[in-house]
Computed example of a mutant assay.
Amino acid sequence: MDGLDRLVHAVAPTGSVELQCHFAGDWTLDHPSTPPNHLPYHIILAGHAELELDGKTSALVPGDVLLFPYGDAHILRSTTAGIDGQRPMLENRRRPHGRVTLIEHGGDGPALDMLCGAFQLSGATDALWTGLPKVLHVRTEHRDALLGLIQVLRDEAARPLPGGGTVVESVTGAMFTLILRSMTASGQLQLGILGMLAHPKMALVVDAVLKDPAHAWTLQSMAEVAHTSRASFARHFSEISGMTPMDWVNGVRLGVAAQSLRAGRLSAGRAAELAGYASEAAFARAFKTRYGTPPAAYGRLHAAR
């Protein structure tokens, strides 16, 4: 496993495909914000559209994949929507279509075919899922692996074949990883967790800490992993991640502990060990500061859901 493997394993994404959109003519589709750790995605299978996010517009073409890391509200619309000053809305004709709900809107002009779904992050997101832009926009024209997965997802969504649910879960999981890989490989992201993975020296540290979060990490030991001086490491780490190295390590430890408590796998004492705390009392104080409730109560609360 490398740093990206460990990141994906730690945030534990579960993907679903929910809608297929067949739109023609003028249309506008508002997407409200979603709860924390619920990440919508859109895949443009055919046709063109526009994305509006924070007042900025981006052109969408066939093969584009959009992932919203923090579930921010956004607008999708046809390329001609609003030219006449009107705001066209969808007629919202819905019907079951295989494993998804098909939404249709007729009209003159180019047609759009789009798949929509979401990822649920159920793992240790604290200090891991940070520093990302509001949308990850991947163009797949030269990414054969991602294009292949999209075709499989499209086929499985259209037909309720035996075992299709497992296929969708596996394909969306691989798609999630390939989206993150493409963003780090392209160098588009210089900040946050993906920025650290894109930086060879920082990627070594991410991998080492995620491999053994309970290790007695210090600024010096992380600098040695990065093969750099302590001062240089601390400066570059903070510039890329937006936090100090030790704040990041503590956030990772508490996130991993919270994940285990939610899953009901560990006692509070064992979670403290996993988080690298010699004292259960110190762990309980740090945990309550971050999550607002003691570890044992947090575990019981989530076990009851």
Rank of each mutant, 00 (worst) to 15 (best):
V206H: 08
H38M: 07
D84C: 07
P96N: 06
W217C: 02
A263T: 05
E104W: 01
D5N: 09
A234L: 03
P160W: 03
G47V: 08
V209W: 02
P36N: 13
K201N: 15
Y41F: 15
F287H: 06
D84K: 07
A271L: 11
A234W: 05
V152N: 00
S182H: 10
Q151E: 14
Q259H: 15
F119T: 01
L60I: 08
Q190H: 11
G163L: 04
G242F: 02
A24C: 14
I75W: 00
D72A: 13
G55W: 01
M222G: 11
T166Q: 08
F68K: 01
T28L: 09
R285K: 15
H142Y: 10
G299F: 09
G98L: 13
L254I: 09
W248D: 01
T34N: 02
Q20E: 15
R94S: 14
L51K: 04
T140Q: 05
D126A: 13
L45T: 11
L102V: 04
M89N: 09
V8H: 05
S221T: 15
L128E: 00
L274T: 11
V8N: 04
L112F: 14
A268K: 07
K211P: 01
R87M: 06
L147A: 14
L90D: 02
L67G: 00
G117V: 03
E141T: 07
R270W: 10
L128M: 06
E50N: 14
V11S: 02
S16W: 07
L29C: 06
G163K: 02
L66W: 00
T28Q: 08
G131V: 04
G131W: 01
P295W: 08
A226F: 09
V152M: 00
K211D: 15
H31D: 04
L266T: 05
G109Y: 10
A73E: 07
L51P: 00
F233T: 05
F233C: 04
Q188E: 12
P160E: 07
I103H: 07
R285M: 10
P62A: 11
W27A: 11
V205Q: 07
L210N: 05
A81L: 10
T57E: 11
A185M: 11
M89C: 10
T140L: 08
P13E: 01
D72N: 13
L266G: 02
A203Y: 10
W217F: 04
P32G: 08
I43D: 05
T34E: 00
G71A: 06
M222L: 13
A157H: 01
S260G: 10
R235V: 01
